[in-house]
């Protein structure tokens, strides 16, 4: 059924014409119609103007150093996997050795309390950080990513 302007094809072909996405036969039909239809020519001109404005727009984008989506490599995963157990074992042995050695060295109650307090504080801090890391690792969406 022809439109009032005499167009015998679907209006969507005007978009296809603007996008150069029509087969030759349809492109020919649209071109012939546009030569005599000011209304459809105006539609095509509008579509082109909007496409040009959209295409030539520029947006602010994040700086390169704001991205962190590179996946972790097998080697870094292995190193981190080994690092934490080793560091934990080292901290346990070091604190135990410091406590035992220091305890043997002195009979003074104040010195023993200082030693015990310091070692306990260090131990609590270390295990607090370790527990936080373990908890965060379970919910961290970026755990597979280089940070």
């Amino acid at each position: 059924m022809p439109e009032p302007c005499g167009r015998t094809f679907d209006e969507a072909l005007l978009s296809g014409y603007v996008d150069r996405a029509l087969v030759q036969r349809d492109e020919q039909r649209v071109r012939v119609h546009l030569e005599r239809c000011a209304r459809c020519r105006a539609v095509v001109d509008d579509l082109r103007a909007v496409r040009e404005a959209t295409m030539t727009s520029t947006f602010e984008t994040p700086r390169d150093d704001e991205w962190s989506e590179a996946p972790r490599t097998e080697s870094s995963r292995l190193l981190v996997g080994l690092g934490w157990p080793l560091a934990t074992a080292w901290a346990v042995i070091l604190i135990g050795y410091a406590l035992w050695g220091g305890w043997q060295e002195t009979e003074n109650l104040v010195e023993r309390l200082l030693l015990l307090g310091g070692a306990t504080g260090f131990g609590l801090l270390f295990f607090g950080v370790l527990l936080d890391r373990l908890k965060a690792a379970k919910t961290d969406r970026y755990r597979e990513v280089h940070k």
């Binding site: 959209t54 295409m55 520029t58 947006f59 602010e60 984008t61 994040p62 704001e66």
Partner: peptide, 11 residues
């Protein structure tokens, strides 16, 4: 704002 401008819209 921590941003830079893109050179072109959509290369």
């Amino acid at each position: 704002m921590n941003t830079v401008m893109v050179e072109s819209a959509a290369p």
